[in-house]
Design a protein around this nucleic acid. Structure first.
Lengths: 231, 231
DNA sequence: GAATGGTGATACCGATCGGTAGCGTCGTCA
DNA sequence: TGACGACGCTACCGATCGGTATCACCATTC
């Protein structure tokens, strides 16, 4: 591989959701099986470290069937990231919902969720960041999905900061995004069970909010939402 | 590649600086040529995306010579990260030196340097983070070098925060590290020429420091230090 | 002038890469 | 019962992977 991958993504990606082949009517969970296995391996080991044969072995689906559902390995990679993106926002929304109405509490609930997320066993960072770093072509689907994902995160943070009414909302939203992306790449460096505290107190400082008079850490009331996938 | 790489790093790495073969007396810059080329390609495209043949072509050094200086490709990867580590701290120290004595000004100078660093053309994130993400084996040299690098960064930040005398020094140091790692992965999302402002104002908020009365952004006086490599 | 040692060129190794062809099987539906 | 579609299996493709063996060349050193 002497040169970087050519920019053929743009044309091809136009069709049905980043190369995902049309799902056939009688499909019985094969697409899901392949995608679930590939997602797990891609996240745990990195995209380029996982060969198609490995996915075939682990999923129990035939190589030929895999290629009936995903035109190329890159299509599988794109589907992985799209799926992570969807699940991430689902959980984000759920975290916020518990505190809906009060933007400060929403933000705290969000950071509590992220703090727990990055402290999980097997957490290996944000898949969007990790995978995008493996490809240098700016037109590669992974790069585009990451860009969209991170732009969406900024917009959501910006909306919360706007509702809180702090000054320099753009800068503060960027600062919150830096904190969160930093947490994603922290790789277990944050103290055990301290990630949430560190994130929340940082956010309060950035927003100029004094911590509640009583207890030290002020968690969101609702500790639920603790499902799995990475982010 | 069905299974992850075996953990053979530990034993082998004992010898001379992560696999780097003994440099021969009459060596005339060949090691440097290879390492410089490999570093550039690894950083720009990712380690697994760059084959040895590519490095051979770009460097103009024979494949056999390359393997006389580096026992394996992984040795080259480790040497790349070690070198990035050294250059990073050299520049870090230089950035701090301009404001030596006043820890707040040191921190501001540091963040100014980082803000400019991540805004450079061709900046593609922190090589330690990027490369470590490509390997799942915790014993891989890349993982260990990253861990050491990031631990060192925390310690340096902690020392500055201690000198400033803010409360919760550990938490604040972690928060600064999150900001910086977040900036490293920001991939051009921060506003043009605004990275430094955003980092510095965040740091002041975290430290409870009011911005200087006069101008809005309060850069470190000394805009020098602008050399190249990534971080 | 011989020994030494770093270099380059070529040719090769086995393994794995992403991806495909061909064929047989089985379940569903008309 | 026959067509159809999803699937598994085997075997294969050319390309590239990381790494090595061999040998000739050339500069330095004694």
């Amino acid at each position: 591989m002497i040169s970087s991958r050519p920019s053929i993504w743009a044309q091809a990606a136009v069709r049905s959701g980043y190369f995902l082949k049309a799902v056939h009517a009688r499909d019985s969970g094969t697409t899901e099986r392949v995608l679930a296995t590939a997602s797990r391996l891609f996240y745990a080991h990195g995209v380029r470290a996982v060969g198609v044969e490995w996915i075939v072995q682990e999923s129990g689906i035939a190589r030929t069937s895999l290629y009936r559902h995903f035109a190329t390995k890159d299509a599988l990679v794109a589907a992985f990231l799209e799926r992570e993106d969807r699940e991430f926002w689902t959980q984000w929304s759920a975290a916020v919902r518990a505190a809906a109405g009060d933007p400060v509490r929403e933000l705290m609930a969000l950071l509590d969720w992220i703090g727990r997320r990055v402290s999980r066993n097997g957490y290996r960072g944000c898949p969007q960041i990790n995978v995008a770093a493996e490809f240098s072509d700016p037109d590669h689907p992974a790069r585009k999905i990451r860009a969209r994902h991170k732009a969406a995160m900024f917009e959501r943070l910006k909306a919360i900061v706007d509702r809180i009414g702090a000054g320099h909302a753009d800068d503060v939203a960027h600062q919150l995004a830096l904190l969160i992306d930093g947490a994603f790449t922290s790789d277990g460096r944050l103290p055990r069970a301290g990630a949430t505290r560190i994130l929340q107190s940082a956010a309060r400082a950035l927003l100029g909010i004094h911590p509640p008079r009583g207890a030290g850490s002020a968690h969101a009331k609702d500790p639920a939402i603790g499902r799995s996938p990475p982010g």
